[in-house]
Amino acid sequence: MSILGGGIFKGMAVTLRNFLGSYTNKKERLPTIDYSWRADGALPQGIGDYPKEKGEQLSDTTTVTEYSRNFPMLLHDGGEPMDTVRCVACQICERECPPQCIYIEKDYDENGKYIKRPAVFDIDVSVCMSCQICVEVCPFDAIVMNSQFELSTPDRFGGLLMRRDDLLKSNDYYHKIHPEEAAARDAKIAAEKAAKEAKKKAAAEKARAAAEKKATEAAKEDAK
């Protein structure tokens, strides 16, 4: 028979071990790395003390580690952003977003024909909860997480509403801040593209074979 309330004491022993261990056995019990207050160059991107001086701005690639995530951004493949933007304004992310912080309008040309890109793409980062669901549902790998954290602004409403042009970031930038993830994503896109291509080829092959077969059958029929 176990002692009444023994589970609580067992749990308390575990937490006590953690508490004391964090002072004696830092390596195992205190994996938190104190990134700030360090010498220059000690950080992954060389941030060092932050901020070094009053009013100093960090670069556009501000990130703490490769694995930090903050708010979403839109990817384009280099060059003029709106020409190579991956987003086709399908609005899947808008519908999936749990706090509904994404707002998208489709883009039309002068004839009223839908061109596959967003005219408006707003994310209210004061509402966004950084859940990454938009990243997971995007079929075009167009929306991924940025890790920029310097977002404080004196304007509570306008300053925290990210417009399309604020959100657009190049794939190179993505590779810079999250190299591992970006490489994996590129590989996946390439694989998907190859698979699609192969499928298309196979379909074409099949259609050709079918047509040939039909032709031969027709010829046979004719011969009869």
Binding site: T15, R29, L30, T32, D34, S36, W37
Partner: peptide, 21 residues
């Protein structure tokens, strides 16, 4: 501080004497 140590974190450790490290 105690909760942080229990959860393998450091806890508040920055705010001390103003304008110094």
């Amino acid at each position: 501080k105690a909760l942080a140590r229990i959860q393998n974190r450091i806890g508040p450790n920055k705010v001390g004497i103003p304008c110094t490290r």
